[in-house]
Nucleic acid binder design. Sequence first.
DNA 1: TCTCTTTTAGGAATCATTACTAACTAGCAA
DNA 2: TTGCTAGTTAGTAATGATTCCTAAAAGAGA
Lengths: 141, 141
Amino acid sequence: MITETIQQRFKDHGLKNTPQRTAIYTALVETTSHPTADDLYQLVSQDYPMISQNTVYYTLGVLQKAGLIREVNVGHDRARYDGNLSPHHHLICTSCQSIVDVMDERLNELSFPNGIPSGFTITDYQVEFRGYCKACRSKTA
Amino acid sequence: MITETIQQRFKDHGLKNTPQRTAIYTALVETTSHPTADDLYQLVSQDYPMISQNTVYYTLGVLQKAGLIREVNVGHDRARYDGNLSPHHHLICTSCQSIVDVMDERLNELSFPNGIPSGFTITDYQVEFRGYCKACRSKTA
DNA sequence: TCTCTTTTAGGAATCATTACTAACTAGCAA
DNA sequence: TTGCTAGTTAGTAATGATTCCTAAAAGAGA
C-alpha cells in the first residue's frame, strides 16, 4: 500500500494525516490476522515508542466511523479489527480464535430472509463459519 | 416449558437442580430477547432477591459448556445469551442492538465455502443480518 | 442420615475500554 | 511564513463487565 493513497483516503474522509494514524491504518490494511487494539499497539510501538494505547483506541474509532475499517466479532473478549473492506466472510477457530478470510463469491448473493418483523430494513449481512484450524485439530488428536 | 423437563435436562448433563439454576435457564428459554447476564440477574432477582451476579455468570458458563444455551455476538459490549437451540440466525439492529430471530430454513443449507485453508474443519455457521428496526428508523427519519 | 461434590454469595481483583485533560500539530488562510 | 483553530495525542484516572477466591450452603446418591 502506497502512503500517497492512504493520505488521500484520509483526506477524502476529512481526517488529518498523522504519522501515528498512518501507521495504525497501514498495519491494519497489510495484515490478514484481524488484530486486537493491543496487537496494533504492540506493533506500532516498534516504530513509535511514545504512542499511547489511547491513541490506538481513538484512531480505531475514527477509522471505523469513517468506514475505512470494520470491527469483527469473535466472542466477547477483545474487539478485533479488519482493514479489508472487500466483501468477504470469516472462518473462526473455536479453539484458538484465529480468523481466516472467506472470499467465496457465492456467499455475497444470499437473498434476504423471510419472516422478519415489518419495518425492519436490512443493510447487509455476514456469515461466520466456525470450526477448528489445522494446528488446533492436531493438538486435540 | 415444564419444570419436569428442565430437571431432566439438567440431570442428563450431570448438572444439579437448584432453584437459581432453574430460574435462570427458564428465563432464558422463555424469552426471545437475547438478554445479557445482567438482564437475567435483574429478572431472576425478582424471585430470588439474594441471588448474586456471580451465580448468574457461573450458571451461564455451566449451561453453555453443557450445550444447553449459546452465546450471541453483538459487538463487544456485553455477552448476550440465547436459550433457543433450534437452528436459526439473527437480525441485529445497528442502532439499538436488539436481536431478532431469523428462522428462514433456506439459510440452514448453505454449502461450505471454497478456498479455506487445508486442514480447517468447519463445524457450523451463523448468518448475522444487520439493519435498522422499525422504531430506530422512525427516530432517525 | 451421612458424605461428597457442586453450587452459591460476597468481596476483591482483573482487564479491556472509555473519559478527562492539557499539550501538541496538521491544515488552512491571511 | 506565520497564526489560528479544530482535531489529535499521550498520560492518567475511571468505568464496567467479567473472573477469581473462598467459606458456607445445599443437591444427590449411598
